[in-house]
């Protein structure tokens, strides 16, 4: 096997990042704005009336969840659009006819989407710091959870972008699946605040593990053990890798 076609990876990666810069408002500014609104509403307005959760002021408590919320939705949105759009316009022909392996295609598209989400996550974290006091107990773990989540959900977005055969479907997954899962995934509350039945149901929500692990890296408090969080995240990552491998092996929706 030959070495990676790094020129190709770089070309696609640059192309995708340039797209972000062109659509800076949509890619960065609007998520930052909406997160700030969450802080104003949940942190300042309502949060003042909510007692501390697990010993953390409510405003601070929701920060990891909010970052995750943006990270998930933006990763899926970026990656799905990044691969769907060339399929839609037909420019994908160039990538498919190039001496580029599937691995390289995935590295480039998913890498670019994940990079954007990470930049976004960092910006939101900084924004949050303006509103509420923050401290991060385990910065390396935090980084690991960030990267893993960004990559995993960018892969999911890539899958969605290949599966979608219209713009409605492209929006369907983020809207109907990701957003509800994140809202019900403990972004705004601790799981043990729920009735027991719903606590059990919640454990089937993969986002719970992400948010919990991520919050643990900040404050050292968690709904489920950090090891379990990491395990579930990796499990989800490998599931996505498996599906992407299958897509390329069969040419599903890429090659008639």
């Amino acid at each position: 096997m030959k070495a990676l076609n790094t020129n190709a990876i770089r070309a696609i990666y640059r192309f995708e990042m340039a797209r972000t810069l062109r659509t800076l408002t949509q890619s960065i500014v609007s998520p930052v704005l909406s997160t700030s609104l969450y802080f104003v509403v949940f942190g300042a307005a309502i949060g003042g009336r909510i007692p501390e959760v697990d010993g953390i002021a409510y405003g601070s408590f929701i920060v990891p969840g909010l970052i995750m919320l943006s990270l998930l939705t933006q990763s899926v949105a970026n990656a799905s659009f990044g691969i769907y759009f060339p399929r839609f316009t037909g420019t994908i022909y160039e990538v498919l006819s190039a001496p580029v392996s599937y691995l390289e295609i995935v590295i480039a598209y998913v890498g670019a989407a994940a990079s954007k989400s990470l930049i976004l996550g960092a910006i939101i974290l900084a924004t949050a710091g303006l509103f509420v006091p923050l401290h991060i107990d385990h910065p390396l773990w935090m980084l690991l959870f960030l990267v893993l989540t960004a990559v995993t959900f960018s892969l999911l977005g890539f899958i969605v972008g290949i599966w979608a055969d219209g713009f409605e479907k492209l929006n369907l997954v983020p809207m109907l699946i990701i957003t509800p899962l994140t809202f019900l995934g403990g972004s705004f509350y601790s799981i043990d605040m729920l009735p027991p039945f719903w606590q059990t149901v919640t454990l089937f929500n993969p986002v719970v593990y992400l948010v919990s692990g991520f919050r643990w890296s900040f404050y050292g408090i968690a709904d489920v053990s950090p090891a379990l969080s990491l395990g579930m995240t990796l499990l989800f990552l490998f599931a996505c890798i498996g599906i992407v491998a299958w897509i390329f092996k069969t040419g599903y929706r890429l090659k008639p």
């Binding site: 076609n5 020129n7 190709a8 070309a11 696609i12 640059r14 160039e94 190039a98 580029v100």
Partner: peptide, 11 residues
């Protein structure tokens, strides 16, 4: 055009 060149692995 530069993008295409890179895609095909050329410096």
């Amino acid at each position: 055009v530069s993008f295409s060149r890179g895609l095909f692995g050329k410096p």
